[in-house]
Write a protein that binds this DNA or RNA. Sequence first.
DNA 1: TCCATAACGAAACGTATCGTTTCGATTGAC
DNA 2: GTCAATCGAAACGATACGTTTCGTTATGGA
Lengths: 199, 199
Amino acid sequence: MSATDRPQPRRASIGARRNPASQAAILAAARAVLAEQGYSGFSIDAVSRRAGAGKPTIYRWWKNKAELLIEVYAAEKAMVKAAATGSLAEDLAAYTAALWDFWRDTPSGRTFRALIAEAQNDAAALAGLRDKFLPERLHDVRALFAAAVTRGEIGAGEVEMRLALYVGFNWYYVLTDRLDEGRAAIPTAMRLVAAPLRG
Amino acid sequence: MSATDRPQPRRASIGARRNPASQAAILAAARAVLAEQGYSGFSIDAVSRRAGAGKPTIYRWWKNKAELLIEVYAAEKAMVKAAATGSLAEDLAAYTAALWDFWRDTPSGRTFRALIAEAQNDAAALAGLRDKFLPERLHDVRALFAAAVTRGEIGAGEVEMRLALYVGFNWYYVLTDRLDEGRAAIPTAMRLVAAPLRG
DNA sequence: TCCATAACGAAACGTATCGTTTCGATTGAC
DNA sequence: GTCAATCGAAACGATACGTTTCGTTATGGA
């Protein structure tokens, strides 16, 4: 960990207001620590050292580790876009492939895993995950399901259940660090998630 | 935490071999700590105090927290049985309902969540989860899928993908602590997991 | 122009956990 | 009777948490 500590130039106060440079340095340091060491190396002390920021500065703007994790993840997630082009199965498969690429090619996969772990530690973090983070992150996927309802592919009352199957499929592979192995199964799995319910 | 520390009577050495009373006391203490305080309260120190055992005794027989978690979980898991009675969807629904009851009525739900979290902390714990714990725990469910293959309900090459959907569905609800809310969706979700793939 | 206000980083605090080491006591195996 | 391995207790150094104190900086309002 000593080798990966590259303290940034100190940033003095710029007066009685938040210093954007400190905010950026802290978020960048958090991303770097997560990318290089994963959740086990992600401590407030480590981020503080890496950013050249004081711990009080972190705790002044983020209530706890979970809030910092959420902001780190949210800053990158906008890169994955959902588009309703054809069938629900195809839309979900395309979105999932993009999401898995994103998880693999950025620190976000590790960030997401850290967030799930943190939510098992801390009741407040779990509430934030359920009530704020997840609804925001599922907004685009939910739109794909809504479009399928409009097209008559699936019933309106089935969306939550199908969403749970969809989300769980992703979680299973990312939490076991097996995204590569599961990749080939995406299209078929999405066909099942989007399959009609026989009477 | 002080109120929940009820040290047990000390157990001296019984000679140059493992003391079964210490083993039992440690496992019972681990279960109790998990049940009362969840993963955030589950420390080796807390288990040691609760059991009236020395920390070296714990570390002598369990390599780390994950191994202790796995043994705590395994000691109870045998209570959930799978039976192949009819269709795959019905078998899965019955098994899942029993599993969720088990997770709700024993400390095992919290134990399982702790295990997932620990696996995000520790690479060795993740390897143990993937290569030992999960295969053992999925043995019965896999048998249900195998029976469905034999009956011609599903294809042999689809088992892993369907298993991922099945496991993920469970993980999603237990990790978000929403087992109650998802319960009604079990039968329908299992119909999708067991649905035939249209050509 | 002056000054209260609030931010900044550094350092240290007390508490907690980890995994290890040392120690004296206990008791079965040889 | 000696050896070997276990037991619990206590303490270790390292690390992390979240907080407090402190001297410094510079804004924004009076």
